[in-house]
């Protein structure tokens, strides 16, 4: 089966919720495949967003490009609806002055239909997420 970036708008992924929104920097920017565009948080943590794959996928590797993110928790769901999230991964990122944080995570038990990213804390008042990509395979469509 073909491996590709499951977290792309163009592959059918969608951000269905984000707790912050600046019209100029909408959450769709996270999955547009372009690290130049980004989503910003607009004050006070935690902040979160949920990506929906609209199918069952198995993720093998995650790459998150961000700035000022300190503690990131990722939850996943295997339900058809965005419910029953279970904790999956939690990372403390390091601050990278003047360049994007590039966090690579080799995933275990990567079956998912939704991913929920929670920024628990940050290195500054605001944080940005430039891209999330998930390498893996599409397992099956929703019946």
């Amino acid at each position: 089966m073909r491996k590709f970036d499951l977290c792309l708008n163009s592959e059918g992924a969608e951000v269905i919720l984000a707790t912050s929104s600046d019209e100029k920097h909408p959450p769709e920017n996270i999955i547009d495949g372009n690290p130049e565009t980004f989503w910003t948080t607009t004050g006070m943590f935690p902040q979160e967003f949920i990506i929906c794959f609209h199918r069952h996928v198995r993720i093998e590797k995650l790459v998150i490009q961000s700035y000022f993110v300190r503690t990131l928790r990722i939850e996943k769901s295997t339900s058809k609806e965005p419910t029953d999230f279970e904790q999956w991964i939690e990372r403390d990122l390091t601050h990278t002055e003047g360049q994007l944080q590039n966090e690579e995570i080799i995933a275990r038990d990567g079956q998912a239909t939704y991913l929920r990213f929670i920024i628990l804390s940050a290195f500054d008042h605001f944080a940005s997420v430039h891209s999330v990509s998930a390498e893996g395979i599409a397992v099956s469509n929703f019946s």
Partner: peptide, 17 residues
């Protein structure tokens, strides 16, 4: 002041890539 800080931070985000 907070709004200004936000704008400056977003400009910094923009300058990263």
């Amino acid at each position: 002041q907070f709004h200004q800080l936000y704008q400056e931070t977003v400009e910094a985000f923009q300058a990263l890539v």
